[in-house]
Nucleic acid binder design. Structure first.
Lengths: 125, 125
DNA sequence: AACATATATATGCTTTCACGTATATTTCGC
DNA sequence: GCGAAATATACGTGAAAGCATATATATGTT
């Protein structure tokens, strides 16, 4: 079985860090690193920012290869690209461990946790 | 002995990544992570870039708390701030491990290695 | 003090990037 | 097909950031 041979190569190393160099994008990434797949409305709610703003940043992250997207009905689910270079994935995890106990991660995480009608967590489950 | 209690706190997490988000700065940082302390002329030679360009980026890195500087005669030696948060130091090491076998790190490292009259490595040692 | 070396800063310019608002697109249920 | 919900994009604007060139500062030597 010739499974994934090619990793999602980010052209330049600094491109990866450019994606982490914006607070909105970083908050989104940290939430996804912690929670896995999230949709636009969950991120919009958690960060309390406008939908276009979130959507545009997610598009950037996707174009850069940092995120992958999966459509589920009207929802678009984004998650960190599992085919990123190993060192890049490790950087994300290390960063999460570093910010886990501090703002804005705590608030974002709480907002997400208390969100009503999350698409993934069906109301009737 | 009340040694270092306070770590060099970077105000915002994304500020740290902004510093890594420029190719010139990243190349400098990777060299310093690998080699330790380096002076401006060594970096200028290794990256083959203009002195003002290197100097300005080092100043940015210093202002952001990512680097510390030490004067030695006419030379200014820069090194990665050892008081950075642990996760930030780990990110730098992980990144170095990730780029060690690829360009531009290989070339930069070679250029540094073959540089004549390096200030640190005295000619008469 | 004059000079050379190493480094830092200033200036003017161009590009990149993030933003808010408005609008378009996609999908689903009817 | 139509309306509603979720998401994406377009447009105009302002701020930030990088660059090259020129120049200033600091240190050591004579």
């Amino acid at each position: 079985m010739l499974s994934r041979i090619f990793r999602a190569m980010i052209k330049e190393t600094d491109t990866f860090f450019k994606m982490l160099a914006d607070n909105t994008r970083l908050r989104c990434l940290m939430l996804m690193q912690a929670e896995g797949e999230l949709c636009v409305c969950e991120l919009t709610h958690a960060l309390n920012l406008s939908q276009p703003k979130i959507s545009r940043h997610l598009a950037h992250l996707r174009e850069a290869g940092v995120l992958v997207a999966r459509r589920n009905g009207t929802w678009m689910n984004y998650r960190i690209n599992p085919d990123l270079q190993a060192w890049a994935l490790e950087v994300l995890q290390t960063t999460l461990d570093g910010v886990r106990q501090s703002e804005p991660f705590i608030s974002d995480s709480n907002m997400l946790g208390t969100m009503a009608n999350r698409p993934g967590l069906a109301c009737c489950a």
